[in-house]
Design a protein around this nucleic acid. Structure first.
Length: 357
DNA sequence: AAGTCGGGGAT
DNA sequence: ATCCCAGACTT
């Protein structure tokens, strides 16, 4: 299969995109880019990479930052456990590895947030180790070219593909091979309507010959989408608003949102909403605007969300509600710097949250 | 092995 | 609407 390697590498050398993390061998920057790019498109991740490297040019800087500032930088990227593991990993590298990443694939894999793919990427791009990167692009490319129909969602299938890639990777410039397989998958061997007419691997491709581009790769994993009905209370008092840090499990872990009332169905007016809300002295609050219902779609959940704006001039009542929801009070102008789900951030930006006082 | 975790772009 | 993106972690 020397031919496969030669074709793909020479295609890469002529056609690849210029990306900032390809201009360096700094393991810190390569690691950072790989974490950002997990399940994330290059064009979505790129500005975050620029922000992170500007703000934290080295791993020591990142390790010394506090977690909330990292989450704030990550805001909008999703899969926030990546950000928390990023920070944890930086601290581990500083504390246990003298500020230098381990160089071996097997050792890299032990660090938080670094799995088989990311370990292979760092080991090959930063340190030249001969270990194959197998991401979604590579599954697709290998599956189609070689006609491999193992399920890429199963550990067994992942093993098959890793071993196939490992059998192909050349000792000379393994990093180039890894970049090339991923770039081919991203630019030519795309999920829908692959560009077979421009593909240097067209001759010899199983899927092209048998017209099975749409059936490969095989992926069984099925996602069931849950519907949830969220009712946020935006409670204000003298220019301050209550916000609550979310638990470390579930969606948006570690981010801030508002006091939340969740129900099995949508609630439309204040009376119904506050009926089941403990410690809420309705008489001391002024009920303000009720927002439209927003539909926020995630991979596993459909969220139907409505915001209820409430204010009070009574300090004691405000304190009482604050404690009832185990929330914190922030000056409105400080909410900008707090890490939030994109939904909350957009609502805050669109509604200056003035008025009702 | 199955479930969970975001937001957005392409089709 | 559906799929999936330079996947990893938890149960």
């Amino acid at each position: 299969m020397q031919d496969f390697v030669n074709k793909i590498v020479s295609w890469y050398e002529k056609n690849h995109r210029q990306l900032p993390w390809r201009e360096t061998h700094d393991p810190y920057r390569i690691w950072l880019s790989e974490i950002i790019l997990q399940q994330t498109r290059v064009e979505q991740g790129r500005p975050y990479y620029e922000q992170f490297t500007t703000e934290h040019p080295n791993i020591q800087s990142l390790a010394e930052a506090n977690e909330e500032s990292i989450l704030r930088l990550w805001q909008g990227l999703g899969y926030y456990s990546r950000a928390r593991n990023l920070h944890k990993c930086a601290k581990t590298v500083m504390a246990e590895h003298g500020g230098h990443f381990p160089k071996k694939f097997e050792d890299l894999k032990k660090l938080p947030g670094i799995g088989p793919y990311t370990a292979a990427a760092i080991a090959s791009f930063a340190f030249g180790e001969k270990v194959a990167c197998v991401d979604g692009n590579v599954y697709r490319l290998l599956s189609r070219f070689f006609g491999i129909s193992d399920d890429i969602a199963s550990p067994k299938g992942q093993k098959v593909f890793f071993e196939k890639a490992q059998s192909l990777i050349p000792s000379d410039r393994p990093d180039l091979f890894n970049q090339a397989t991923m770039e081919m998958g991203a630019m030519v061997c795309t999920p829908k309507k692959p560009n077979c007419m421009y593909c240097p691997l067209q001759a010899g491709c199983f899927a092209f010959e048998h017209n099975k581009q749409e059936e490969l790769p095989v992926k069984t994993k099925k996602v069931k989408v849950k519907k949830r009905y969220l009712h946020y209370l935006i409670i204000k008092h003298e220019g301050e608003v209550l916000m609550k840090k979310r638990d470390t499990k579930g969606i948006w872990a570690g981010l801030y949102d508002f006091p939340l009332i969740e129900g099995k169905e949508a609630i439309v007016d204040f009376d119904d909403l506050l009926e089941n809300t403990p410690n809420f002295n309705g008489g001391k609050f002024l009920l303000g605007q009720i927002s439209q219902q927003y539909k926020h779609v995630l991979t596993h959940q459909q969220l139907f969300v409505r915001f209820f704006e409430i204010s009070t001039k009574n300090q004691a009542a405000f304190q009482q509600v604050k404690e009832a929801f185990q929330s914190h009070s922030f000056p409105l102008e400080e909410t900008m710097g707090i890490p939030k789900p994109i939904l909350i951030d957009q609502y805050l930006k669109e509604h200056q949250l003035e008025g009702v006082e």
